[in-house]
Amino acid sequence: MSVSRQPSGASAERRQEFWLGARDQIPILVGVLPAGLIFGALGKAAGLPDLVVQAFSLLVFAGSAQFVALGLVVSNAPSLIIILAIFIVNLRHALYSASFSEHLAHLPPRWKICLSWLLTDEAFAVASARYRRPEKENAHWYLLGTGLALWATWQVSTAVGILVGAGVPESWHLDFALPLTFVALLIPSITDGPTRLTAVLAGLLAVGMGALPYLFGLVVAVIVAVGVGALAESRRRVRSTGGELE
């Protein structure tokens, strides 16, 4: 038979990447858990059918967008406006998509379709650290593991929130684990002058424009900061090659 079995070493390596991705997502899950519980409890309190609340998490699967949508549902906004709001809140995911497109270019379509589905803030944050490390042949398994860990946690925490309420006392500040994990991922992502400039600028601009609705300020802040970072890098490269353009 011409069908060759994958050597067991390769499949062990893929399994290892998958579980590593899931494991590296755990700190974020601590912060995501209360958010899922609160979403479930809020949806229930708003009088939505249990199945509808769960379907938001199952199908839309986007934390901040779900909270925005729920608020608009409660205030009886037109469906089209709510869908548009969800789109705007999630616009930043297009940047993640662009950022990972090259890493995933070699994969068959079913992988791209599936990994796109899982490309949340949290999965992007953790997996982009993985993509800075070498030996990337099986890194898509890492992304799958990290994405599925988040997806499963989001589903279970929403369901528990619907069934028994939020439960976690606010005074525990468990939600704070999420920005703290982002801090832990942010620091190593700053590798040189241009990335430092990008991060500082993005932080300042995001706060400055934070009053804009639907996370629009964040999107603009990121685009401007990325542009300035790239510009700083190319100027630096021009300087270091004695003014010669590549």
Partner: peptide, 29 residues
């Protein structure tokens, strides 16, 4: 994707993380 666009992509992660962290820690508005 144009070359200038691809050069910018490595800055997306630090930018988004910094933006999310800053708004979570300082608040907005």
């Amino acid at each position: 994707m144009p070359a200038w666009f691809r050069r910018g992509l490595r800055f997306v992660a630090p930018a988004v993380l910094a933006g999310l962290v800053a708004t979570e820690l300082v608040g907005t508005g």
